[in-house]
């Protein structure tokens, strides 16, 4: 029988060096903070779009609920993705653009009112 304790098997490689602790800190920050703003930004942009076809209170509620699912997917991906450059592109730059865009867009276009 295969050992069922295959995961999180204690080994000697998890001693922290400055380089590895920076890698982990950067990933945690990108995942938790970057992931949050990316999820909120995407959801806010979609709520803005949906508010043209349904009352804004409904669009906002729908996308705020789905935002948790988006955030969950981004969190899991952030720890599975091996290239940290990609994390910076998506969760750093992408998040800033989505969140910033959602904050700015209503002012630029005039918010739809239900």
């Amino acid at each position: 029988m295969k050992s069922p304790t295959h995961f999180a098997k204690p080994n000697n490689s998890n001693r922290f060096s400055p380089a590895s602790s920076w890698r982990i800190t950067q990933r945690l920050l990108l995942a938790i903070v970057g992931g949050y703003f990316t999820a909120a930004g995407i959801a806010a942009l979609m709520a803005l779009a949906l508010s043209r076809v349904m009352p804004p209170s409904e669009a906002g509620t729908l996308m705020a609920m789905l935002a948790f699912v988006i955030y969950l997917a981004l969190l899991l991906w952030a720890f599975a993705e091996r290239r940290s450059a990609r994390l910076w592109w998506v969760l750093g730059l992408g998040g800033a653009l989505a969140f910033g865009g959602a904050e700015m867009l209503p002012a630029l276009t005039g918010a739809p009112r239900g």
């Binding site: 909120a40 930004g41 959801a43 806010a44 942009l45 709520a47 803005l48 508010s51 804004p56 209170s57 669009a59 906002g60 509620t61 996308m63 705020a64 935002a67 948790f68 969140f99 959602a102 904050e103 209503p106 918010a111 739809p112 009112r113 239900g114």
Partner: peptide
């Protein structure tokens, strides 16, 4: 998610 809630308002 206050930003999502209030984005349309």
């Amino acid at each position: 998610f206050p930003a999502v809630i209030s984005s349309a308002y």
